[in-house]
Design a protein around this nucleic acid. Structure first.
Lengths: 346, 346
DNA sequence: GTTAGCACTCCAAAGAGTTGAGTGCTAACA
DNA sequence: TGTTAGCACTCAACTCTTTGGAGTGCTAAC
């Protein structure tokens, strides 16, 4: 059998098939392509080419007498080689984002929603992981006879509050001392830099109040952990109903569950963050995604950065026939904006 | 026409119909009831009674030759009069709840999930409204050259953080003074009690630093508002797919959207809180619910209390044929537990 | 008051026929 | 040699009809 090449004409036809399928969601027939493109080829010729493309694995025939739909491999080629930048109406995102810059969680919710509304797909965004983030400020105060409040502020103004029970009596003066002790020793340190020796040292200096120190350190550790766990915001879940190939009960239920549980989305976040891609944009098509419930979807993720060490993931989930151009564009805009936002803030 | 009475036999039959429909989800025929109950009546007799029940409006025939399903009025009767307490496996809730009592939001998420898992319906819970809640403690601290952190603690240890920009230089001493000023004047006050005169007074005393006072007051107000807005947690959304009568695309999409947006759920919360019912449990059947997207569902809500003035709403959303006994039971257990939790905490 | 029997209704599932979009193949053409 | 027209074939989707069964209302008998 002769070795087949993906020449320019084949490429054009494949491109046309994918474009058309993205629009309609229906399998694409040869006649359609014959008219749709400016190649001036008859449907018969197209059929021959399509047969080749199918043999090469770029397109699939759902059943004998249906048109063709792109295979994962076809999408992949499209994504890798054919995407072009377009100027979109995504400018509006900029404006909206600048409005809401106060609270981190509100901001992230906003972003998720923005993406969902603009793209008509489902979206998710993870809060920036504070792993490598540095402690900026710690404050203990008494709020009640037997309760202390520990406020922990990190670089980027990520704030954690913890109520600690106290057994001993603590004078105002002692609280002040503890505050000074904690701040002088811990400020400026990354979470990972706080080791056991350091904690022991602190406890020793705190003397009788060493129990408090333990509690504070625990609070720091726990505050971080809670963050890692589940801080993922989603939006536009119900957009999946707009795409019949995802809207059947079985699939929809699984996807929605994944979105609600959020737990599984962390895998996606991990995967994205671990990959040191040049653009920071990842495209998972079908089975490529680390989340099994999304094997009929495509997932596009991007990494955003909020100052050093504060990286999060933002992603869009839709049908395989998603408008990759638009999605990538949207993600680029968003990550860029988040970046800007941080710069402006400091 | 003779006036009809809902005698004991009719009641039993109606009950049997509802019970059966709850189990199967299919319209119930006379023959089924004839065997299902211990009344020893033939299907013909049941038919006669069913005709009566239909005339009275308790049951409905979806079409001529189908069995009967309960009408909203029928459900209503069932809910109002026939519910019995059962000892369920809901004890496990107690244990789980006691595990997680640290952070409010984690707790609420837990509760929502617990309810969803136990009942197989969708659940929601609103964070306790802090309306009438009292300020317990305010703390200003400098975290950066031009940024202050305001921590606001309320009764029940609800905590709000706000980063405030500052233009002026502030010495540590002055910060201390401001803290004392704020705490002496505002602590113990309910949010509503803070009026303009008071604010003016504070500003005057703060002298040159009155701008900070404004910011803090704004922060208090805003912290509350953010709370009112959207602090609703949901779980088990995808349980609705378990009930065919809700699982079609149109309906499911609407319901899921409502759950995701959460905005509309606040209406439900409002409605529940406003009603001063003896038990605190409300049942909305079909159209009775204030949320239009749930007109094919039943919604059961309960009010829980976390100390004085801290009231929230917890609810379960499912098909009309929901197991009301179980749901009411679950809600009672939960609200009771939340109550206990608060007592233990203080 | 209760029940058996019967004619009637209507949905749902299964089957039969039709349509139309699409294909592969072959033969003719430039 | 690449392109095209033509034709027979396939198959999902739709419509129409049939059939079976579950359920009803009514009547007459117990």
């Amino acid at each position: 059998m002769m070795e087949m090449q993906l020449d320019e004409r084949k490429t054009k036809i494949l491109q046309a098939i994918i474009r058309n399928y993205l629009e309609t969601g229906e399998p694409v027939g040869s006649r359609t392509i014959s008219k749709y493109t400016d190649l001036n080829l008859s449907s018969a010729t197209i059929r021959n080419e399509m047969a080749d493309l199918e043999e090469m694995g770029y397109i699939i025939q759902p059943h004998t007498s249906a048109g063709r739909i792109p295979s994962d491999k076809g999408y992949r080629l499209y994504v890798d080689t054919m995407m072009e930048q377009k100027d979109k109406e995504l400018q509006e995102m900029k404006e909206m984002m600048l409005e809401k810059e106060d609270k981190m969680d509100t901001l992230l919710k906003q972003v998720a929603k923005l993406l969902a509304v603009n793209t008509n797909y489902a979206s998710m965004i993870s809060a920036p992981a504070v792993h490598k983030n540095k402690l900026k400020f710690i404050q203990l105060s008494r709020v009640d006879v037997n309760q202390m409040l520990a406020v922990i502020v990190m670089e980027g103004n990520v704030i954690r509050n913890n109520i600690l029970p106290v057994s001993e009596e603590l004078s105002d003066e002692n609280i002040l001392k503890l505050n000074i002790l904690l701040n002088t020793h811990l400020n400026g340190l990354a979470i990972e830099e706080i080791n056991l020796a350091m904690i022991q040292n602190l406890k020793q200096q705190a003397g009788i109040h060493s129990e408090i120190i333990s509690n504070v350190v625990d609070a720091i550790a726990e505050g971080i952990k809670a963050d890692e766990d589940l801080e993922i915001y989603t939006s536009g879940t119900n957009n999946i109903f707009k795409y019949p190939e995802l809207a059947d009960q079985q699939r929809a239920s699984e996807i929605i569950n994944t979105f609600e549980e959020k737990q599984m989305l962390t895998e996606l976040v991990q995967d994205t963050l671990s990959d040191e891609n040049s653009t920071g944009i990842q495209v998972y098509i079908g089975d490529e995604t680390p989340i099994s419930s999304m094997k009929d979807c495509s997932v596009v993720t991007a990494t955003y950065e909020l100052g050093e060490g504060m990286r999060g993931t933002v992603g869009i989930i839709g049908p395989k026939r998603m408008d990759y151009d638009k999605v990538v564009d949207a993600l680029k805009t968003i990550t860029h904006q988040l970046d800007e936002l941080y710069k402006k803030k400091t």
